[in-house]
Design a protein around this nucleic acid. Structure first.
Length: 679
RNA sequence: GGCGAGGUAGCUCAGCUGGUUAGAGCGCAGGAUUCAUAAUCCUGAGGUCGCGGGUUCGGGUCCCGCUCUCGCUACCA
């Protein structure tokens, strides 16, 4: 790190369509803040940049649902997010937003430069257009019948019922959610960033020059690069976002993935209008992006490609991405309200900001998904923060009040044991530094805690309360050392638990916060007056965490009740003639086998009475080939044949399906001859 | 099915480029202690390092196969 003159630290821009929860914190903001605070304490020149990501289709949809403008939505969440970060002590140098004028200009300029230099390719495609609303429709603005499960309310990009990924033109009966009209296909042109053209240097840069990146990051990048990169659209037809700054591009905005990371740059410009360039364009800046694993590809491949295409910018030196945090065994989910929301936590646990920071760091999902439980939260508070750290400080300070009227007593000679204790400190300091600089914050915090553990052991071994009756010189030395250990704690905990470190420094009579003093044996001068002993942490009682667990259980119960599958709503009326077009017949399964390399497909040979034919059906999750053999079933015989996995399927098996997904095939109440018509 | 990441003590997790009796915290058992928010300190029990092969003098650690979990992705007329 000595080759760098400044440290530019970014934390993933939170998307402003909801508040921040513990998953975001553990994955991104807590580690980033620890890193930023640490670098500042070490005297480095640091900028810690973040802000709300406020564009994109989901926000326009949320606005439409609520009957307000997109700006209203982002205003609301931007404030909640910004405020809650501040209260947790996340020390951004700036927390701005992508709807700012600075950002619009920066993003537009960025685009223009790439556009003018021919870094984009232009492609024309057909997309759905709503003639009533007079606009192109984003995937999410189109609903229709899912071609896969028949759900009538599938979105243009995804069916939430069966989970499959769709493209809008796969939908049957597409409808515009804006006007309800049937959209038409119309030509539109968009610009694409040809990622494929950047593949070669990306391979070299990541796979050769950054083998030190975390395994999850490196692995994900390699997977993408090996799969071959595709051009990616940088614009889309939407009225919310940064308008494409090109003539004839009315109604088009920058795709949110393109404008969002530029937010790091624009927020820096907003903060440092005069010298921002040296932060983004000089090789002696170390740029580090803190993100969650869902953002790896953007920050390691897409954004660097943008920066490289632009030409003036440096590339990130590292992208320490964390895995995900689960909550009480289940995936955190905003839509299911399965989360611990930061702003709620701050209200419900006043003064316990550091407890959350501690727990999220101590159990951070650095190498794999981890689980947050309230039980663990309580245990870590009670048996680590209270019992080890808080208790040690309390012991040292109370003993000093008792025997030396609250003044730091002098060192009166060190014995070998004293020396061995003091000798441990530089070792711990080194370990803390190494771990933080390699983004291992969990391990670093453990080493910090070891200072307090060392203190507890020192007191237990030397027993100053016994010596007080016989040897006050010894007591004097022991308490001096104990207080120096407390002072080291006050420094070392600074990046992790800023509020507590502050409180502790006050208790120690405004002791030093300088990182270089950490591990020194003379942080507190002899005779220095301490302030009154106060408790750094309080125990958390069973009832307190039980309340939180109950809250989650209620959420779970509510979710279950809400999900209780009613029936599918009835489909629109269908004429008798339409129905009669369908040729439904009885048939018998003669042969059945799994289609290789698929999870759901069975290939069936059936006797329809008229002929013997092949049908491929997605029922392997519910029926084994053996179970199907010899069964009489009903089929839609005159369905247009279609190739599935290279096999021509000549018909469809009729299945009954519950809303929870369970499927059973239909058969006549009594076995009939094959080819009997069903109506 | 493909790709990525995981599967190590009761629980939560470390174990870097292969090397002496596999570690930590919590929990548990026993002991010590009382300055401290019944906190602390010491000792101990507890693991066939997912399963099976292979390379090696030697494998949680490398290679192959299998299996389970999580994420992304494909198939679903």
């Amino acid at each position: 790190m000595n080759n760098y003159n400044r440290h530019l630290i970014t934390a993933a821009l939170p998307y402003a369509n909801g508040p921040v929860h513990i998953g975001h914190l553990a994955g991104v903001y807590v580690p980033a803040d620890i890193y930023a605070r640490y670098m500042r304490l070490r005297g480095r020149d640091v900028l810690f940049i973040c802000g709300s990501d406020e564009h994109g289709v989901p926000i326009t949809i949320k606005a439409r649902q609520l009957g307000v403008t997109p700006q209203d939505v982002v205003d609301k969440y931007h404030l909640i997010i910004k405020d809650s970060f501040e209260r947790l002590g996340i020390s951004f140098d700036i927390y701005s937003r992508t709807s700012s004028a600075t950002h619009h200009k920066t993003a537009a300029d960025f685009f223009k430069k790439l556009y003018n230099e021919g870094q984009f390719i232009e492609k024309t495609s057909e997309q759905y257009y709503d003639t009533e609303a007079q606009q192109f429709l984003a995937d999410r603005y189109i609903t229709g019948t899912c071609p896969k499960c028949g759900n009538e309310n599938a979105y243009g990009d995804q069916c939430e019922k069966c989970g499959s990924t769709l493209s809008p033109n796969e939908l049957i009966n597409p409808r515009s959610t804006i006007s309800g009209a049937q959209p038409i296909l119309r030509e539109t042109s968009h610009w694409y960033l040809p990622l494929d053209q950047h593949e070669a240097w990306l391979r070299q840069w990541i796979l050769e020059e950054h083998k030190e990146w975390k395994v999850n990051v490196y692995g994900q990048c390699k997977s993408w690069l090996d799969g071959g990169l595709q051009p990616r659209a940088v614009s889309r037809d939407l009225d919310w976002g940064v308008p494409v700054p090109v003539e004839g591009a009315e109604g088009k905005v920058l795709y949110v993935w393109f404008d969002a990371p530029i937010g790091y740059i624009s927020n820096t410009i907003e903060l440092r209008p005069d010298d921002w360039k040296k932060w983004w364009q000089q090789e002696d800046t170390k740029l580090v992006h803190f993100i969650g694993k869902d953002n790896i590809v953007f920050h390691c491949i897409v954004f660097p490609a943008m920066l490289k295409a632009h030409g003036d910018y440096i590339l990130p030196e590292n992208v320490p991405a964390n895995e995900f945090l689960n909550l009480e065994g289940d995936k955190i989910s905003t839509s299911r309200n399965w989360a611990v929301w930061l702003h709620e936590y701050l209200d419900e646990f006043p003064g316990k900001e550091d407890v959350l920071r501690y727990v999220l760091c101590a159990n951070a999902p650095e190498t794999k998904d981890n689980d947050f439980t309230w039980k663990d939260f309580q245990t870590r508070n009670n048996s680590e923060l209270v019992a080890v750290f808080g208790n040690f400080v309390n012991r040292a300070v109370v003993l000093t009040q008792k025997y030396f009227a609250g003044k730091v007593p002098p060192l009166k000679g060190l014995n070998d044991y004293d020396k061995s204790i003091l000798a441990e400190l530089p070792v711990l300091k080194q370990a803390i530094e190494d771990n933080i600089e390699h983004y291992r914050f969990r391990e670093a915090l453990k080493e910090v805690m070891n200072i307090a553990r060392l203190g507890n052991k020192y007191l237990a071994d030397t027993e100053p309360w016994k010596l007080a009756k016989t040897d006050m010189d010894r007591v004097s030395t022991i308490l001096n050392i104990s207080l120096q250990l407390c002072a080291s704690c006050a420094i070392a905990f600074g990046p992790f638990l800023p509020f507590t470190a502050q409180k502790l420094r006050y208790m120690l009579g405004e002791s030093s916060a300088e990182w270089d003093k950490l591990a020194c044996s003379d942080i507190l001068p002899e005779g220095h007056t301490l302030n009154e002993a106060t408790l750094l942490f309080d125990k958390i009682e069973d009832e307190t965490v039980q309340t939180q667990v109950d809250k989650l259980n209620n959420t779970k119960a509510a979710n279950l009740a809400a999900q209780k599958p009613a029936c599918e709503p009835q489909k629109p009326a269908c004429s008798f003639d339409d129905f009669m077009k369908m040729d439904i017949r009885t048939a018998t399964v003669l042969e059945a086998e799994r289609v290789p390399k698929t999870d759901k497909l069975l290939k069936l040979k059936i006797d329809t009475g008229m002929d013997t034919r092949t049908i491929v059906s997605g029922i392997a999750e519910y029926y084994s080939p053996e179970q199907m053999l010899g069964q009489q079933i009903c089929i839609l015989a005159n369905l247009e044949p279609r190739k599935i996995k290279g096999i021509e399927s000549q018909g469809m098996i009729l299945m009954a399906k519950e809303t929870n997904g369970k499927m059973r095939f239909i058969r006549p109440e009594e076995t009939l001859g094959n080819g009997a018509t069903v109506s």
